[in-house]
Simulated assay, not measured.
Amino acid sequence: MKPLPALSPAEQALMDLIWQKQPVSVAALLELVNSDRVEPITRNTLQTQLTRLEAKGWLKHEDGDRVRLYRSAVPEKRGRGKILTELKQRLFGGSGISLVRCLVEEGGLSDTEIKELNELIAKHRKGGKP
């Protein structure tokens, strides 16, 4: 398995949409991307981003009768893990505890999420995979 190149924020946002909606056409993706933008992007801009993601190994496409459908070439769990590793390295010097501490201390976790985190820790201590 070859290493995945880093994603720009715009590419990451596209991957988030693709993981949710795949397989997805350019037209459908363009509508999703522009749904909450003040200045919409063009079809050509989107197509360029998709081509780059495909070249980086994050996406693949299949040609149908009249439409090209895009889907992730990378499972969501692996892709999000890659993104998290980069974020952890860039913002927290590679420290997982610093990342979690920031989430807990800055109010980024709800009581329900903290309870779930405690359950994951307990399960991990017992030898179970989180």
Rank of each mutant, 00 (worst) to 15 (best):
M1V: 15
M1T: 14
M1G: 15
K2M: 15
L4E: 01
L4V: 03
P5R: 05
P5S: 08
P5G: 05
L7N: 05
L7E: 05
P9Q: 08
A10R: 11
E11Q: 11
Q12F: 10
Q12K: 11
Q12P: 02
A13R: 11
M15E: 00
L17F: 01
I18E: 00
I18Y: 00
K21R: 15
Q22N: 03
Q22V: 06
S25V: 03
A27M: 08
A28T: 06
L29K: 00
L30M: 03
L32R: 02
L32S: 05
V33D: 00
V33W: 00
V33A: 00
V33H: 00
N34Y: 00
R37D: 01
V38C: 06
E39D: 12
I41T: 08
T42F: 02
T45A: 15
T45R: 11
T45V: 13
Q47I: 11
T48M: 10
Q49V: 02
Q49P: 02
Q49A: 11
L50M: 02
L50N: 00
T51V: 13
E54H: 09
A55T: 09
A55F: 09
K56N: 10
K56H: 11
K56Y: 09
G57S: 04
G57F: 00
W58G: 01
W58Y: 04
W58R: 02
L59E: 00
K60Y: 06
K60N: 06
H61C: 11
H61E: 09
H61D: 07
H61M: 08
H61V: 06
G64C: 04
G64T: 07
G64D: 06
R66N: 14
V67C: 03
R68E: 05
L69A: 09
L69P: 01
L69M: 08
L69I: 05
Y70D: 01
Y70S: 01
Y70M: 03
R71M: 10
V74L: 08
P75G: 09
P75N: 10
E76S: 09
K77D: 15
G79Q: 00
G81M: 08
I83C: 07
I83K: 03
T85P: 04
T85W: 10
T85I: 06
K88Y: 06
Q89R: 11
Q89E: 13
R90P: 06
R90H: 12
L91V: 07
L91Q: 10
F92W: 04
F92I: 08
G93N: 07
G94E: 05
G94T: 03
S95H: 04
L99K: 02
V100C: 04
V100M: 09
V100D: 01
C102M: 13
L103A: 07
L103I: 08
L103V: 05
V104E: 10
E105Y: 10
E105R: 10
E105D: 14
G107Y: 04
G108M: 05
G108Y: 06
T112A: 13
T112M: 12
T112D: 12
E113R: 09
I114T: 08
I114Y: 06
I114G: 03
K115L: 13
K115C: 12
L120H: 09
I121T: 07
I121C: 09
A122G: 07
K123Y: 10
H124P: 02
H124F: 12
R125S: 10
K126D: 14
K126L: 15
K126R: 13
K126I: 07
G127M: 06
